[in-house]
Amino acid sequence: MWEITGHTRVLAILADPIHQVKTPQCINELLRAQGVDAAMVPLHVGAHDLATVFSALRRVRSFAGCIVTMPHKTAVVALCDELSVEARQTDAVNAVRRLADGRMRGGMLDGIGFIDGLRRHGIEPAGHCVYLAGAGGAARAIAFALADAGARRLSIANHSVERAEQLVERVRRWHPNIELAVGDSNPGGHALVVNATSLGLRPEDPLPMDVAQLDATQTVAEIIMEPAETALMQAAWARGCRVHAGAPMLAGQARLMAEFMLGQPLSAAA
């Protein structure tokens, strides 16, 4: 039987709100299958308490690392002592490993996991025009991953046009050959449409784009995992679009997350 003992390494996920997270279930299932003595728990941490909680976790010797999700992905950057290349590119962190001396190393796996999830379901972004809603931590990682994957054109739309412009310029510095543009609410003319905002977590949220402009030639992808069917997904289905849910993004990066936090490779058996 799987037990939590004094030898168990502790993992966590930091979020606000926390009810929607699926990562603990996915990570714990993977750890059990691998026979790894570690367990993940959800921690509901507000923005004002993030630095205090992060400082305390440095001093917990059995703490191995954490996943960081909305709305903390950008705030955690300043709290880390080291950053991976992906974290530096995006100025955002979604996975943290506590080193033996208490220092924290931040990484960004959202983009890699998102592309892996697309490809596992037969959706290939290479050579296509992509509309990306959002310019926050997850959106930054996905923007870079789409460019890395060979997207032909990337339109980035955000309620703050300035933030969209900043992300366009950031991607252009690393990928000068991709066609980049600041988009508006109209996702028309793009083969792949991605919602990388938090809009859809709550029933009262507005839609992240003008769904009246969607048509049956397009694929609409979500990053939100709970609810499993967002209002955007329902609207896209109604217009005949192919829909890609948020769960495959988590499945695509669960192993990467576990390996990053624990600082060890997992076997390919599970």
Rank of each mutant, 00 (worst) to 15 (best):
I4P: 12
T5Q: 07
G6Y: 07
H7R: 10
H7K: 14
H7C: 05
T8Y: 00
T8L: 01
R9L: 10
V10G: 06
V10N: 01
L11A: 07
L11M: 09
L11W: 06
I13R: 02
L14Q: 04
A15Y: 05
A15G: 15
P17Y: 08
P17K: 09
P17L: 10
I18T: 12
I18C: 06
V21H: 03
K22G: 01
T23D: 08
T23N: 01
P24A: 04
P24Q: 00
P24I: 06
P24D: 04
P24Y: 00
Q25E: 08
C26Y: 03
C26W: 00
I27T: 14
I27G: 09
E29W: 04
L30S: 12
L30I: 10
L31T: 07
A33R: 13
A33Y: 01
Q34R: 11
A38R: 05
A38Y: 05
M40V: 09
V41A: 06
V41I: 08
P42N: 02
P42F: 04
P42L: 01
L43C: 13
H44D: 12
H44E: 08
H44V: 04
H44Y: 10
V45G: 03
H48S: 15
H48A: 15
D49Q: 15
L50I: 10
A51E: 12
F54Y: 13
S55H: 12
S55V: 12
S55M: 13
